[in-house]
Computed example of a mutant assay.
Amino acid sequence: MHIGVPRETAAGETRVAVTPETAKKLQAQGHTIRIESGAGVTASAPDAAYAAVGAEITDAAGAASCDLVLRVRAPSEAELTLMKPGSTVVGMLNPFDREGLERIAAAGLTGFALEAAPRTTRAQSMDVLSSQANIAGYKAIILAADRYQKFFPMLMTAAGTVKAARVVILGVGVAGLQAIATAKRLGAVIEASDVRPSVKEQVESLGAKFIDVPYETQEEKDAAVGVGGYARPMPPSWLARQKVEVAKRVAQADIVVSTALIPGRPAPTLVTAEMVASMKPGSVIIDLAAGRGPDMNGGMTGGNCPLTEAGATVVRHGVTIVGETNLPALVAADASALYARNVLDFLKLVLTKEGTLTVNMDDDIVAACLMTQGGTVKKAA
């Protein structure tokens, strides 16, 4: 099969869907790989690295017109015109973008959205959300260390003792856990909060303190269990108590990293404007939900903090708020390496040994990821 890998054109997107490592493996399976010139440059993979493993270097049309097209982000309207009806596109197509999926369907493409894979043991090796969130959690702490004008670890020097930075992590999924681990390596004192009681043990195993908010009703306990690896919206009664506890920790924090997302809904507000005003001058907030919060700031989309501005770094009440919307793209080489391996493992489910595409709807992963086929949207969240 001819497999195309176009260069990503979305603003700020530096990742690539196939690396020289995975291109070599696909070539060994008998496929022809066509890489758009420059597709991997921003991920430290020059054209020469692809050519060295036997991939063909081509232009945008040559990559997009293949039978199977592998991408990081969904194709734009202009890119869809380069793709031929009946071909297949695999990437992070955003299952919640109904309009985008309808455009892909109208172009006659079979579309697989990798974010829709079930969060099961069998699907772990192709879980793009986890692989990229892991990188985002790491990079969040590195950005915080860069913006924070003090040390992270406690230091005892001849000029006096420097206290360790106090870090608060809000939301302890994959990104939150990696943020805890990275901050711990840098010597910070860490506290973390999450609605799911099951993560307390993981938080403490990484050396952080869990901000415990007791559950008073069965409704609160049921909501806290979550679904599919994500938290569910919590009852107002519990949220009110959590807000009080979190506000105390945020006021004392030097660094706050917020990671809370609920699929298909605006990100919840965890750090209010009042909390930001209570923080010490020079503190830093890294909002991993930037761009996915309620509409705030005169039409700009915030995140877990209403003062966040998507794609920008701002200072409010003396606190630096970082609103980067694509942290994995800031670690493009490793982010691409992990993503490309996720893609490679998914392809094992849809490519036969003969090199043809098959859509096995009896496979729960394939069925979950299939978004468009035969000119229609098969599924949209």
Rank of each mutant, 00 (worst) to 15 (best):
G323F: 06
E354W: 12
G291W: 00
T325Y: 05
Y339A: 10
P328V: 03
T356L: 09
E324R: 13
A332R: 14
L347N: 03
L307F: 03
V314Q: 02
G302R: 00
G282H: 06
G299D: 01
V350H: 08
G318H: 08
E309Y: 01
S278Q: 03
L330H: 07
K353I: 01
T356G: 08
L351F: 01
L307K: 03
T313S: 09
V350F: 09
T301H: 04
K353R: 13
V359N: 07
R316I: 11
A312N: 08
I286M: 07
V359Q: 12
M279S: 01
L349D: 00
D334W: 12
V319N: 13
L357F: 05
V359F: 06
L288W: 05
G318L: 06
A333H: 14
G299H: 05
D295S: 15
P294F: 09
A289S: 15
K353L: 11
V359P: 11
A289K: 00
R341Y: 12
T356A: 13
L307W: 06
L338E: 13
L344D: 09
V284A: 04
N304S: 09
H317S: 14
E324H: 14
V331R: 03
L327E: 07
D334F: 12
T356S: 15
G293T: 12
P281S: 02
V350C: 02
E354Q: 03
K353W: 06
L288T: 05
K280E: 13
T320K: 05
R341H: 14
D295V: 15
Y339T: 06
Y339L: 13
G311C: 14
C305N: 03
S278P: 05
A340Q: 06
R316S: 08
L338H: 13
L288H: 05
A332V: 13
L288A: 13
K353Y: 00
V350N: 00
A337G: 12
K280L: 10
V359Y: 04
H317C: 10
G291H: 02
T313V: 14
F346A: 06
A335M: 14
P306D: 11
V319K: 09
S283A: 15
I285H: 01
V319D: 01
M296R: 11
N326C: 11
V350D: 00
L338N: 14
E309G: 03
V343I: 13
K280Y: 11
T356Y: 12
E324D: 15
A310R: 13
V319A: 09
I286A: 02
S336G: 10
P328C: 11
V315H: 11
R292S: 10
T301C: 02
V284G: 10
N297G: 03
G355W: 08
P328Q: 12
G323D: 07
N342R: 09
V314W: 01
L307G: 00
S283K: 09
T320F: 05
V350L: 04
P294I: 15
L330F: 07
L330A: 04
V343P: 00
